[in-house]
Amino acid sequence: MNRIIRWFAMTMIIIWVVAPFIPLWLWSFSLRWRFPNLLPEVWSPRAWLYLLKPSSGVLDATIDSLVIAVVVTVVSVAIAIPAGRALGLYRFRGKRFMEFLILAPTIIPGLASVFGVHGLFLRYHLANSLVGVILVHLISSVTYATMVMWGVFSNYNPEFEEQGRVLGANPIRNFRYVTWPAIFPGIVVAALFSFLLSWYQYLLTLIIGGGKVQTLAMLLFNFARSGDRPVAGALSIIFMIPALIVLFVTSRYLTGENAAVSGLGGGR
């Protein structure tokens, strides 16, 4: 009985992981693939070659996506380290309220604030710009990165820093040699998390970027709805590359739970 259930579950897991990706690959290499054929009738690298062409906009969109995601990641982590430290290490008056305020964006969907942000940005000339898009991506990235660093600092012993100080490390060297190595795994998680959040962001980019900022996520969304299945398939695969890197990093360097947390970034 147990064995049968286990076999069934294992089969399900394999289907779960493999099934959605088979048609992506097949479609990306097909020129013509009509019903009811199980395999493409005419194979072709057309979709891939098309994506490489400058006119497809993939290269520009990749650069935009990368610039936005990298800036968002660096800023998020830089903000999340002190914020996570404050929440994880200290008790203070008004802490519950601060927790609520900083975590509110995880429960209240981005949709609720993005229209207002757009209105604000229109007034301050931030709408339709890369800077505006980066700022709006920061809301959720900082929140999730702070959550990660909060967890890190909840299990952190600040006396190590005091030990470093009395042994002669000034605050900067102390951060470099004592704090940084201790929180580094957490920083990796927070960074991966922020990067994926920004890389995958569609709606906020659409509203704030106003079509002027074209990221890979927007391109993919458009192809998904256009009906050009070969191109949608190929672009999906390109779009997943950061996720595969994350998978590799997490399986190599992080423990299961951290991996789960960083994977959450993929969902949002």
Binding site: P20, L24, A217, F221, S236, P242, T250, G256, A260
Partner: peptide, 21 residues
């Protein structure tokens, strides 16, 4: 490991896969 494989995979790609399936 396989079970946690699609944690970092984006929803959009999942959606396109479901569409094709």
């Amino acid at each position: 490991f396989l079970f946690s494989f699609n944690l970092p995979i984006p929803h959009v790609v999942g959606a396109i896969g479901i569409l094709f399936l």
